[in-house]
Simulated assay, not measured.
Amino acid sequence: MAEIGIVIPAAGQGKRMGAEGNKQFLSLKGQPILVHTVRVFQMSDCVSEIVIVGAENDLALIEDLVSRYNLDKVARICQGGVQRQDSVRLGVLALSPTIQRVVVHDGARPLLTLKDFHHFLQAAEGFSAAIMGIPVKDTIKQTNSSGSVTDTLPRERLRAVQTPQIFDRQTLETVHLRAASNGYYGTDDASLLEWMGYPVQVIEGSQENIKVTTPEDLWLAERILTMRET
Rank of each mutant, 00 (worst) to 15 (best):
M1S: 10
E3N: 09
I8H: 02
A10M: 04
K15C: 10
M17V: 04
G18S: 07
G18Q: 04
L28G: 04
K29P: 00
I33Y: 01
L34Q: 03
V35I: 09
T37H: 05
M43T: 14
S44P: 11
I52L: 05
V53T: 01
A55F: 08
N57K: 15
D58W: 06
I62K: 12
E63I: 10
Y69F: 10
Y69Q: 04
N70I: 13
A75W: 13
G81E: 04
G81P: 10
V82I: 12
V82R: 14
Q83C: 13
S87R: 03
G91T: 00
T98V: 14
I99G: 00
I99T: 01
V102Q: 07
V104I: 06
H105V: 08
D106I: 09
T113S: 07
F117Q: 08
L121I: 02
A123P: 07
A123I: 03
A124N: 02
A124M: 01
A124W: 07
E125W: 06
A130E: 03
M132Q: 13
G133E: 05
I134G: 06
V136P: 00
K137I: 12
I140C: 08
L153G: 10
L153P: 05
R155A: 13
R155K: 14
L158T: 09
A160V: 14
V161H: 05
Q162F: 08
P164R: 14
P164I: 15
Q165C: 13
F167M: 00
F167S: 01
D168A: 06
D168W: 09
R169Q: 07
R169P: 07
E173L: 14
T174M: 14
A179N: 04
A179V: 09
N182C: 14
G183A: 11
Y185K: 15
G186E: 02
T187S: 15
S191I: 01
L193T: 04
L193W: 00
L193H: 00
V200L: 01
V200W: 02
V200I: 03
Q201F: 05
E204W: 11
E208Q: 10
E208P: 08
E208D: 15
K211Q: 15
V212R: 03
P215M: 01
E216G: 12
L218H: 05
L218V: 09
